[in-house]
Design a protein around this nucleic acid. Structure first.
Lengths: 231, 231
DNA sequence: TAAAAAGATTAGGCATGACTAAATTTATTG
DNA sequence: CAATAAATTTAGTCATGCCTAATCTTTTTA
């Protein structure tokens, strides 16, 4: 006798936007070293734990996760690959909105949540090209490449940790508060800005930098929230 | 006694992507002067007429259409406004894909169908700005502005109808066949290309044009498929 | 280590949107 | 103008995902 499956599996080629959200949530917990429990996922997605149990059954049948009741879910290779693809899309769209459309770094998340579900590998690869194959998004988070490889975020350093004489480029921020981003705007500090650390004032932790022939002083509070990539 | 509504109305603030598709289909028929019958809509959306009847009930309760059973549907002001907003999004995204990402004019429709459902007026207004507030999409169809005004497509002319001495810019095509678009590519004819009609050869209908200091001859078959805006 | 608390799963519903088959209305035509 | 054909609507289902309430498991704690 054939065993009846506990959960119905849908046989579509593409993973629905809904299911993709679950995969992304599981990946996000996994990267933090946390267990993908039904309660943790339900908190992330604003649903009820019971709904998560149901979806775990579906994703399990689709071989996107390995799910052991009461023990949480783990992404399969295919599930992880799809989740990383979503992260790639999300971060590329955020980069597009900030760099090309002039949005502030804290305004783009929600819209990117929608854009990431647009289904076209060609679109995203061309967007990647259009943006110059960036390695990091406006928040300093690494953008996976088209093969799913993720640059090491550790290659970014907080500007306050840079030594005198170092050349570097602004890549992201640790804080996305409105006042902070406005302040950056006022000082002309944008993504990609190249600069050299000229002097570090140990008295108050501020540093003097040269950028595009101009010299300025950045406060300690400022440089502790700025991420850069050493050139 | 209170009358029970024939169809349930959902009380969400935003119109679901699904319902938006219906509004767009109704608008499209309306612009062609055709009646929005259940069969016509079902053909457009690849569904069954019975499904359309159901959705007409829903849209009617939401005051997005006026629906009289057996008589078809008409958009209300609100319904029309939402449909036009979709068309705007669709055509701006198509323009973006062609002009910025290098897609061909016949490759962009399906992806734009997805992008048009991204919900953010700010996003689309900034995209419009980024693209330079274009009046026509790559197919020569007018792009509604942020207030819903649509330019008159009649301000475009087929290049074969231009008179000698006229300055004009390429704005679209009548055919989107692969071979035609490749041919345009070969000749360096792109959207926005400015040119002047120098001579019309009545013998075979070909015309001589000057563009960016260069002179070339376009065949009759070619110019009958090209749309331009007189400068 | 047994009882209580916390977490997860099952059971039973509901809304959205789609489908098929049957019934009804409108249009066509002999 | 009646009868058939075509179009439309109604009735009854189904899949996806969500919810609440009730029932397990697992973990904590006395």
């Amino acid at each position: 006798m054939s065993s009846t499956p506990k959960y119905k599996s849908s046989s579509s080629l593409t993973t629905s936007s809904n299911r993709q959200d679950y995969l992304k949530a599981i990946l996000s917990l996994d990267l933090k070293g946390a267990k993908a429990s039904t309660s943790a996922i339900s908190a992330k997605l604003n649903t009820q734990p019971a709904s998560v149990t149901g979806m775990f059954g579906v994703l399990s049948n689709l071989n996107l996760i390995n799910y052991i009741p009461y023990k949480g879910a783990k992404l399969t290779d295919e599930g992880r690959s799809q989740a990383i693809s979503l992260v790639r899309k999300h971060r590329l769209w955020e980069t597009f909105m900030v760099e090309k459309l002039g949005f502030r770094w804290d305004e783009v998340h929600e819209v990117a949540e929608q854009l990431e579900h647009v289904n076209s590998e060609q679109l995203i690869d061309r967007l990647d090209d259009f943006l110059g194959f960036p390695n990091f998004d406006p928040h300093g988070d690494p953008i996976p490449d088209s093969l799913g490889n993720i640059a090491d975020r550790r290659s970014l350093v907080v500007v306050s940790d840079l030594e005198v004489g170092k050349m570097a480029s602004i890549r992201g921020v640790l804080s996305s508060s409105d006042s902070f981003l406005k302040h950056l705007d006022d000082l002309g500090i944008r993504l990609g800005l190249e600069f050299e650390v000229v002097k570090v004032y140990t008295y108050d932790g501020s540093i003097q930098v040269d950028s595009a022939g101009e010299s300025m002083i950045w406060s300690r509070k400022l440089v502790e929230q700025l991420l850069a990539e050493v050139n």
